[in-house]
Design a protein around this nucleic acid. Structure first.
Lengths: 125, 125
DNA sequence: TTTGTCACTTTCAAAATTAAAGTGACTATC
DNA sequence: GATAGTCACTTTAATTTTGAAAGTGACAAA
């Protein structure tokens, strides 16, 4: 079973597309979750939680709900008894890849010591 | 007089360049300030404050300090008695343009009704 | 029966954000 | 020369968000 819930009535603070994008991904965690879903094959709550930067579980839970709500992520049940879920990016979520790549490029070029590799280090799964 | 203060010892939560970039610009306001400096010819505290999304003045003050601290923005005194300042992007700050463009593109394509125009609407100066 | 896993939720203190008012340096006007 | 106005912020206090940690419920395996 696949759930996609998208509520289309969000109200924005301005008509600027950047401001609108930031209302959704303008925080320290959301794009890291997208990164892990897109490149690091982390698709379960557990795997996402064990990611390099150690997102708090309540934050992860809230962000995943928001991403589902906006249609960037869908959750699917991949196993019953016990029920287990996987999170996957939708086309809308995958369309953020150039944003991630540019953020990675900027960080790599202008912040010392950062990696330039979508694969990253993957310290633990 | 031009001030550029850059402290090179920031500690990051991971080696991922995206995570590092987000530690600096991962919030609702910072990239909007960069947008206004880059495209909207807003260079004084007042002009930035009057921008479309109405950033609170203490947040603006704190973000400008952070951007100066990381070397993305420099402040210059353009007038004495009374002393007045202008903020400008450095090369490092300007290098964020592709990030802004991709964020704009994504918002425009996937969030209904957003503008696709670096110039924006500029409702008041 | 006990232990373990997964997918969260709850709790509560600490930190960040917000709106609003205030400050200091000056200039211009009555 | 007293008052009003501008710019560049800072301070204050209430609200919201974050973060670390512990807890919960559904099951499975030993």
């Amino acid at each position: 079973m696949t759930e996609v819930l998208k509520s289309d009535d969000h109200d924005f603070r301005s008509r600027c597309s950047i401001a609108r994008t930031l209302e959704l991904v303008g925080d320290k965690w959301t794009l890291l979750i997208v990164r892990d879903l897109m490149w690091h094959d982390k698709h379960t709550f557990q795997a996402l939680q064990n990611s390099a930067e150690r997102v708090p579980s309540n934050i992860l839970s809230e962000r995943l709900k928001r991403l589902m709500n906006w249609g960037l992520v869908q959750r699917q049940t991949y196993q019953y008894r016990p029920v287990r879920y996987q999170y996957h990016l939708t086309d809308i979520g995958r369309a953020l890849e150039p944003v991630l790549l540019q953020a990675m490029r900027w960080g790599h070029e202008h912040l010392e010591g950062g990696l330039f590799d979508p694969g990253g280090e993957q310290p633990d799964e």
